[in-house]
């Protein structure tokens, strides 16, 4: 059993996972229905009268009108998703995108989460460095023997609770 759990087997598992993910990621997901495409575009558009809801979610009449327009554009089969969105922006003369731009003040909404993550990870790394310096060192042979003796006394002890 120990051999079964050795590093070559883990390597093999890693290779299997990478291969399977590669197959799955590149596999054709089948045809999208017109409805799927309308939904995907509607999810990217903001309902102009609903304060934060997407056209996909909202049941307001303005959202209804935009959905109808998107359905018409999709049915025509001539426009890409981005062209349809640009057309909606022109027709409805509104702030239509639900995703902020990556420029100017709007970019902060993208930058700050990354900055928060980086700061947290660096802070954690520094804390671990400090803890390592403070560490009293590894257990002595005497400590290990004591632990083993106590463990042997209580075979029902939880593994890691």
């Amino acid at each position: 059993m120990k051999k079964l759990k050795s590093w070559p087997v883990w390597m093999l598992m890693g290779v299997i996972v990478v291969a399977l993910l590669a197959v799955g990621a590149t596999k054709d997901s089948g045809p999208r229905t017109q409805g799927d495409r309308i939904d995907a575009i509607s999810k990217r558009l903001a309902c102009p009268t609903c304060d934060g809801e997407s056209v996909y979610v909202s049941r307001a009449s303005a959202a209804e009108a935009i959905r109808t327009q998107v359905a018409r554009d999709v049915a025509s089969g001539k426009l890409t998703d981005n062209q349809i969105i640009a057309g909606i922006a022109r027709t409805f003369n509104a702030q239509v995108l639900l995703v902020p731009r990556a420029t100017g003040l709007d970019s902060l909404v993208w930058v700050l989460p990354i900055a928060a993550l980086v700061c947290s990870v660096v802070g954690l790394a520094m804390a671990f460095r400090r803890w390592k310096r403070q560490n009293l060192g590894d257990a002595s042979a005497q400590d290990i023997a004591l632990v083993e003796r106590l463990l042997a006394q209580d075979p029902t002890d939880d593994e890691n609770v």
């Binding site: 903001a46 934060g52 997407s54 995108l97 639900l98 995703v99 902020p100 003040l105 902060l108 989460p113």
Partner: peptide, 27 residues
């Protein structure tokens, strides 16, 4: 922090630049 930021970001933009912004599901 990300969810809070996304929720209040339209307020920040409106306060600083006096324009409407929507942060929605795709973000």
């Amino acid at each position: 922090f990300v969810v809070l930021l996304g929720t209040v970001f339209p307020l920040i933009v409106e306060a600083l630049q006096n324009r409407q912004l929507v942060v929605g599901e795709p973000f």
